[in-house]
Design a protein around this nucleic acid. Structure first.
Length: 423
RNA sequence: GCGGGUAUAGUGUAGUGGUCAACAUGUCUGGUUGUGGCCCAGAAGAUCGUGGGUUCAAAUCCCACUACUCGCCCCA
């Protein structure tokens, strides 16, 4: 019989890696709370229509059929969330958070599902730390979200990251740019690869993303979106840049930065780490002032970022940053099988009740003390509490420190304070 | 969806036609009667991914499948 194994693109996070995860999540949560964000969790499953209307059928999630969608009869199609923002905005509307005094600052952490071909840094299930500010158009809100991401990376020890910034305009000005870009590309149709010709038809902005040969030189002379922004978008972008400059934050204006989700307006950005392989994007985000309306709610501006946790783990490993070690248990209780087991187990829970991290050396039958001592060494404990028959008869246990100090006989009544103080 | 690579004990590897498949590490047990780390000794653990083919003989050659992995596309 063949053994059942992990599904393609799925990952088990083993105890060693959990150390990284705990560090990342703890850092992210404390930063978010410090910045005034509140946690809100939303379901992993949502109505498919949420993503149809929110993320848009022009997105790769739909075009490349990347979503895990389950059809449950005629009226019911449900989808494993491929991103966080749509669900959070849905919950914001549904629970009436739009009546809260804006801005509403939310964060969440959880799994995201996309049916792609897995490779280094790309999984079909990955986790994101996601941050959103709803109800606010101020570019300072954009800055908050960006710096939360950047400062998270900094606190985790990252030094060299590239911060890519662009504006994608709004429904007023974006179409003008799309027309200009289309005209430009149409004039150079002979230089376009088949893939890009197809993109030109479906979603001209996508051509900017092209990695086809020769496109770099051609696109260098293509029209820039920043020249086509309407007054509002241009002001917003200028103010955003001014704020970033005033904070001494460096960033690269990348007019070819296009995001795969339809809802973005104005600000778009990504942070890249070249050390983790081909999948360099550590996080991506932007402004989505039309999303709430698109999914049937009141017009609500918003800005947010999705931060990939697995890629941070990859980055920390690439930088050879060791994961913080788990604190070892203070004491291991050794005993000699059934004769002393009851006393050993009672002692175990008495120690735990006082908050001491104690472990029991399991022993069916009479397990040698040597092997229990070896176990203690492997677990890295400071003390071995030896529950022996003769001592027990006198209400005593032996406590052996593993750092070379001498072994002591301690009364059962005093063992807690002994372990707490070390004598 | 399209390409490349890989598949041998828990883990990491060696082994390119020929006795009971090797090494490291990990695990377990011992090294005098109830005391760790180092060291020493021993043990357990692999139908060599699956199925087929070639051959007297296959982990080794061929084919298919599957899985994993890396890359393209795109993204976190």
């Amino acid at each position: 019989m063949s053994t059942i194994q992990r599904l393609t693109g799925m990952q088990d996070v083993l105890p060693d890696d959990q150390r990284y995860w705990q560090l990342i999540v703890a850092t992210a949560v404390s930063l978010a709370e410090q910045y005034g964000f509140q946690r809100m969790d939303v379901p992993i499953l949502e109505a498919t229509n949420l993503f149809v209307r929110g993320v848009g059928t022009g997105s790769d999630f739909f075009v490349q059929k990347e979503m895990y969608t389950l059809d449950e009869g005629e009226d019911s199609s449900i989808t494993l969330r491929p991103e966080f923002t749509a669900g959070l905005v849905r919950a914001y509307i549904e629970n009436g958070l739009s009546s809260w005094s804006p801005p509403v600052k939310l964060y969440t952490i959880g799994p995201i599902f996309r049916r792609e071909r897995p490779q280094a840094g790309r999984l079909r299930q990955h986790s994101q730390f996601d941050v959103e500010i709803l109800g606010e158009t101020d570019p300072a809100a954009d800055v908050e979200v960006m710096l939360l991401a950047m400062n998270l990376y900094r606190q985790l020890g990252y030094k060299e990251l590239t911060f890519q910034l662009n504006s994608t305009g709004c429904p007023q000005c974006k179409p003008l740019y799309v027309t200009a870009l289309t005209d430009f590309l149409a004039a150079h149709l002979d230089k376009l690869a088949p893939v890009d010709k197809e993109r030109l038809q479906k979603n001209p902005l996508r051509v900017l993303d092209s990695k086809e040969r020769g496109m770099d030189t051609l696109l260098a002379s293509a029209p820039h979106i920043l020249d086509y922004l309407c007054a509002d978008c241009a002001d917003h972008f200028a103010e955003l840049r001014g704020l970033l400059d005033s904070l001494g934050e460096s960033y690269t204006i990348n007019f070819r930065l296009v995001r795969g989700i339809d809802y973005y307006t104005k600000t778009v950005f990504e942070v890249w780490d070249k050390a983790i392989g081909a999948q360099a994007a550590l996080c991506g985000g932007g402004r989505y002032d039309g999303l709430a309306e698109a999914i049937g709610g009141p017009s609500t501006p918003g800005v947010g970022v999705g931060i990939g946790i697995e890629r941070i783990v990859l980055g920390l490993k690439a930088q050879e940053q060791p994961a913080p070690a788990a604190p070892p248990p203070l004491a291991l209780i050794a005993h000699f099988g059934s004769a002393t087991k009851t006393a050993a187990v009672q002692l175990l829970f008495r120690l735990r009740a006082t908050g001491l991290p104690a472990q029991l050396a399991f022993a069916r039958g009479r397990r040698s003390l040597k092997s229990q001592m070896r176990e203690a060494d492997k677990r890295g404990v400071q003390y071995v509490v030896i529950v022996g028959e003769s001592e027990l008869a006198n209400g005593l246990v032996a406590v052996r420190p593993l750092d070379g100090r001498e072994q002591a006989l301690v009364a059962l009544d005093e063992i807690v304070t002994w372990l707490q103080t070390g004598y």
